[in-house]
């Protein structure tokens, strides 16, 4: 982590004010570091200009991996490695393999996607988050703006932009 990284924070009470504020602040040419909320705010990724998450693709690929592994495993075990006649059926009784294939597809898709989510979002039990304001997980939305990145605008100007956009408070925060 860089030292002496200073942030100016706009604190918002309401999600609709926040959504308008994000557009206004970005319209003023300010680069927003990140917005923190106590709950998922719908439409926030659009106003922040975030791209759609690629997690569904990860889920699909892991699901396909699950399907492939499950079918390969069952055909290998039942047809190639130790063929047995069960109820006079074909060794490779394909319809019988569908339930296990389905379950393993779901299992790998779910775990694979969640694993990617954890890694992408840096979520881990020993993770030490940078907490801009403890009220983020309670009732406030916080817009963090990196002063170094927006040095051309200056603290005073940024503070004015935040206040006029509807922020109930404007604070500063530094991390060691």
């Amino acid at each position: 982590m860089e030292r002496d990284k200073n942030f100016i924070l706009g604190v918002y009470d309401d999600e609709d004010v926040l959504l308008d504020a994000i557009s206004k602040v970005r319209g003023n040419g300010v680069k927003i570091h990140e917005v923190y909320s106590p709950f998922p705010v719908h439409g926030i990724d659009d106003v922040l200009g975030y791209k759609r998450s690629k997690l569904p693709i990860a889920a699909f690929l892991f699901g396909m991996l699950g399907t492939t592994l499950a079918l390969t495993m069952q055909f290998y075990m039942m047809k190639i490695d130790w063929p047995m006649i069960i109820g006079g059926k074909d060794h490779a009784a394909f319809p019988d393999f569908i339930p296990v294939t389905f379950e393993l597809t779901v299992l790998l898709a779910a775990f694979g996607m969640v694993g990617v989510f954890m890694i992408a979002s840096n979520l881990k039990p020993w993770g030490q988050p940078r907490i801009f304001d403890v009220r983020i997980t309670d009732d406030k939305h916080v817009m963090a703006i990196d002063l170094a990145v927006n040095s051309s605008l200056g603290e005073g100007k940024l503070s004015d932009v935040l206040k006029s956009s509807g922020a109930s408070e404007v604070n500063f925060k530094s991390f060691e």
């Binding site: 923190y36 926030i44 990724d45 979520l123 940078r130």
Partner: peptide, 15 residues
């Protein structure tokens, strides 16, 4: 798990 409530994380969380 070091949750910080970032909009990016919430967006992934919803997905």
């Amino acid at each position: 798990f070091g949750w910080d409530g970032a909009a990016k994380t919430w967006s992934r969380y919803e997905s």
